[in-house]
Design a binder for these strands. Structure first.
Lengths: 336, 336
DNA sequence: CTGAAAGCGCTAACAA
DNA sequence: TTGTTAGCGCTTTCAG
């Protein structure tokens, strides 16, 4: 690294004192505009860039937040990160991401590094039921927030999409389409999101005075394969469904594919809606798959706002869920 | 932020001097093991963690590398990041990622922040033909490497997958299967990767004394939709192909889907191979799609090694390409 | 309006 | 073997 110029270099170059140079660059104190410009010119000439490390050391604040992701594909983390970044940037805070890939060892290492770098806040992200800082690591009151993720520590601040609300939205959409037998094909029951989405599905049906038919609720894994298999099972029923809420877009897409092969048409024979609004999947499906968007970017933004408030010393209510939205495509509405 | 204990606090707590505490914690100098242990105990008791900012300020090295990603989905960046991280960690270097999402403004901001934090190295990643540090930003000799990405600056260090070699591998695989009419359905021609992969395809054919039939080379976009359309076009030829090299897995999957609908069987009627080995896509295809893996994690590791050498002052040859590997699935080999 | 000096937390050279 | 001190680059009083 070619030695970067220091503030002292700038001062010398401009023929002023260190303090003066500092004032000029920080617009603090009162300076003759002549001196100010002289300093600024020198700074530019030398390619000066203040050393954040020194600044942070001085003020005891790094203006930096660390993001630890356990979502190894980045599919969920990226939009969250963008939202976070936008909001933090407004406050002059930098966001750095570390990838933990669900490896506790790695995660511990990262937390350690971030603490050493004296970050002013910490964000954890990535689905994981029982998230919590690696044991033994004392975060010492560092503002911490879990986004799209949860901690089992009492009092921790978590921000999640409203899974139940999303599923309700999906189911109500199908009800509004006049569907009477609505199935739910979803992922593994040990995911909280699966249970919540089922609850939303149930609420919507109950709200419309309809009972939940247990034959129409199928748990499996998150794959397209499972979606295909589930469709065949549903079709084997005495009374097959006329609509399906899928637990995610991959399952939804599997359902649609199996339908095509059986000569069934969506939405005429069965309307299908997914969850996640993963565009690569949803848009490539035939017909394109309606879905529930978790508004992850907005989730990130809200996380950033809360974190800022926490950094300012405010106490924050422990957990919140943000609304999902409905994205209609041809699998439920041919005119979409 | 509850004030973290400083080294001085530890020293006081242990009843020794500042210098002694430092020696104890850094295993430097010679200390009585008794004092050493006393200090370590105090450090643990107080939850002491050295302030990297101060350390970095002192030694003029931050032991930190910044990664700037332009891959907004993280699909390519994540594995690269893992590889990088592993190698850098061995050298006690932390890796922080910033997301630029192909927004030059954002990117500039991030470079700025990273320079301010005095990172010891910089990595750019994410497909983009004409990458280069945002104009006017003087990196001042900071070790910089482009992975899965390129800079047009002369002498810049770039590390890429061997796209041509990958396509050659794919084509040779099909040739080895005894296929005679091999098509190439790929993405937009203005991608360098598209041109290189085509070149690899050509080389393999030429190497087997076969001519390239222009009718069998189709350019489109990277979507499944294009794959489906391309298959129909190929089937309309007087002499349809008996094998296809797809430019990526999405196109490959589109080809397979359209085949199913026409009642064609892979690999019997047409063998299909993709590129990227994006497991979500490749494994969900029917039959599962053979593909070319770009070994992104290895790419990241090699980038880390090169960066370390650069940080040590070594000069590095400007550009290198790392081999891809063949992943055989049922779309070319039913026994796979 | 500008300069000098202290100190953020740490390491390393030098004294004791 | 341990203590003292200077200084990394910056900001911020307090003098001049």
């Amino acid at each position: 690294m070619s030695p970067r110029p220091t503030l002292r270099d700038v001062a010398t170059h401009a023929g002023v004192s260190l303090g003066t140079a500092s004032k000029a660059l920080n617009k603090s104190g009162t300076l003759r505009s002549e001196t100010r410009n002289k300093v600024l010119a020198s700074a530019r000439a030398l390619g000066f860039r203040p050393n954040d490390l020194a600044q942070a050391l001085h003020r005891g604040q790094s203006y930096t937040v660390g993001l630890i992701s356990n979502d190894s594909f980045g599919r969920f983390t990226m939009p969250i990160m963008e939202g976070l970044e936008d909001v933090l940037h407004e406050a002059g805070i930098a966001l750095f991401m570390c990838n933990a890939t669900d490896d506790p060892e790695r995660e511990k290492r990262h937390i350690d590094q971030l603490l050493g770098k004296r970050v002013d806040g910490l964000v954890f992200t990535g689905r994981r039921a029982d998230r919590r800082p690696a044991p033994g690591l004392n975060l010492g009151g560092l503002p911490t927030i879990y986004v799209f993720s949860q901690s089992d520590e009492p009092g921790s601040v978590c921000l999640l999409p409203d899974d139940a609300g999303g599923a309700r939205l999906a189911t109500e959409h199908l009800l509004a389409l006049g569907r009477g037998r609505i199935a739910h094909v979803t992922g593994p029951q040990d995911f909280e999101a699966v249970r919540l989405r089922h609850e939303g599905y149930r609420q919507a049906l109950t709200g419309a005075d309809r009972a939940v038919d247990p034959d129409l609720v199928l748990y499996g894994d998150w794959s397209e394969h499972w979606g295909r298999e589930a469709l065949h099972r549903l079709c084997a029923l005495a009374q097959p469904p006329d609509a399906i809420v899928a637990g995610n877009d991959q399952i939804g897409r599997g359902l649609l594919e199996a339908m095509r092969e059986r000569g069934l048409v969506a939405p005429d024979d069965i309307a299908v809606i997914g969850f996640d609004n993963w565009s690569v999947m949803a848009e490539a499906a035939r017909p394109p798959l309606s879905s529930i968007d978790m508004n992850l970017r907005a989730l990130g933004e809200e996380a950033g706002r809360r974190l800022r408030r926490m950094m300012a010393g405010e106490e924050i209510a422990s957990t919140a869920r943000l609304p999902c939205s409905l994205v209609v495509r041809a699998s439920t509405d041919p005119t979409a």
